[in-house]
Computed example of a mutant assay.
Amino acid sequence: MLLVRPPGVYPPQGDTELLASCVRREPLDGASRVLDLCTGTGAVALVAARTGARVTAVDLSARAAATAWLNSRLHHRRVLVRRGDLLAPVAGRSYDLITANPPYVPARPGRPGATGRGAALAWDAGPDGRLVLDRICREAPPLLAADGVLLLVQSSLADVRATLALLRAAGLRTAVAARRRQEFGPVMASRAALFEQRGLIRPGEREEDLVVVRGVRER
């Protein structure tokens, strides 16, 4: 997919592709309401919009929101883009599918997480990588319609079991929908020594599992 990808906006990568592949398996149509959190370039939102679904895309970054809006116009897809903090711009609404590719990289000491500026907003997520993941697990389930689905992609370094447990506690039926092993990208590789110190990877290990967790709100 040809996309505008300006500096400072998270470009589509392996996690984007894995999440998009799961979106394509969902039974979306023109009546479906879809919310894409942490939309970045809008790549996942556009995959959903191709089905005719009514898609809203949200990002905290003003540059990312502008990029998603531009990409939706370039591809002639109707995507409502909102800038804001996760679910704040859509409070009180209901969705059949919520997707999210949030920041999940454990941050260096002294970096509070996804509260900075620029491209770091797209990956820094506190000391354990769960600063944004935990919020989504708490705040997204109440916005799901009956039989609504949450698709959330993350790294295995950010504790997949915690995500599954939090979503189950929120009343969702959960499972790992997709998994892919890949080598570290530049950001993860630059923090490999930190990950080794914290016991997140074995000495010399430079790979991670990308995981899509699927949660369903049953009737």
Rank of each mutant, 00 (worst) to 15 (best):
A64G: 06
V187E: 15
P7A: 11
L144V: 06
L143Q: 12
L74P: 03
R219Y: 03
L200N: 07
R180E: 15
G148R: 05
L28W: 07
D124I: 00
H76Q: 15
G92E: 05
A119K: 03
L87D: 00
P203I: 07
R179L: 14
F195E: 01
V105A: 03
A53Y: 13
A43V: 05
E207H: 15
A114V: 02
D85S: 15
E218Q: 12
G52L: 11
R50C: 04
V213Y: 02
L143T: 05
G30I: 08
V153L: 02
L167G: 14
L166P: 00
V187R: 07
E183R: 15
A125F: 05
R130F: 00
W69N: 07
V211C: 10
V153A: 02
V211Q: 10
R173N: 02
G116N: 09
L87F: 10
S156T: 02
P12F: 01
V55M: 12
R73W: 09
N101C: 14
A53F: 11
R78I: 01
A145V: 01
G118K: 06
A91H: 11
L150P: 06
L152C: 08
R111C: 10
P27V: 01
L172S: 05
A145C: 08
D59S: 04
L133A: 00
S156A: 10
